[in-house]
Computed example of a mutant assay.
Amino acid sequence: MIANLILFGTLMVNAGAVLNFNFKKKTSETEGFGEKDVSEPTTGDQIRQFLQNLKFFRIFIGLWNICVMFMMLVLFGS
């Protein structure tokens, strides 16, 4: 059970890290004399920011993948 959860989490992080889309924030209309609309970030903005942050940690994700492959062979192999 724990091996399946580790594998699931690893695959989900890998999927997010290898996305090569341009995540651009929607430009909001300016109000008044060039003042920008300051509002709380939406859920979509937070997901976009999380996926952008994952791109910076690709080397660590790669090392984690090697660790998980080693564990699969040594600890969880039959």
Rank of each mutant, 00 (worst) to 15 (best):
L54R: 06
S78P: 15
C67Y: 10
E31Y: 12
K36S: 14
E35M: 11
N65A: 04
F23K: 00
I61D: 09
D45A: 07
V13G: 01
T43F: 15
G44D: 06
G62R: 07
E35Y: 05
F76S: 05
L19A: 05
T43Q: 05
D37L: 15
G34D: 04
L73T: 09
M69Q: 13
F70V: 06
I59G: 09
M1F: 10
E31C: 11
P41C: 01
C67Q: 05
N22C: 11
I2N: 12
Q49A: 06
G44V: 05
C67T: 14
W64Y: 13
M69C: 14
G62H: 07
I47C: 08
L73Y: 07
I61K: 03
C67F: 09
I2L: 10
L7S: 15
F8Y: 13
I66A: 15
M71R: 02
S78W: 15
V74H: 08
N4P: 06
V38M: 03
G32R: 07
D37G: 07
T27C: 08
D37R: 12
T30E: 06
S39G: 03
A15Y: 12
E29M: 15
K36N: 14
G62K: 01
F60G: 13
L51S: 01
N20P: 05
K26N: 14
N14C: 02
L11S: 07
E31Q: 13
M12L: 09
I47V: 09
P41F: 02
N22F: 04
F33N: 13
T43D: 10
S28A: 15
V68H: 01
T27E: 15
R48W: 03
F56D: 11
F60P: 06
T10C: 00
N20F: 12
L51K: 06
L5S: 12
T10Y: 00
L63D: 13
T30A: 08
E35T: 10
R48V: 00
T43M: 13
G77H: 08
T43K: 14
T43A: 15
E35W: 02
N53V: 02
K55P: 09
Q46F: 01
N20R: 15
Q52K: 14
G16E: 01
L63V: 09
N20K: 14
K24G: 09
F60D: 11
Q49R: 15
F70Q: 11
S28G: 02
L63W: 11
M72N: 07
I61Y: 06
I47R: 15
Q52A: 04
K26A: 12
L73I: 09
S78L: 15
M12I: 14
L5P: 03
Q52E: 13
F50R: 00
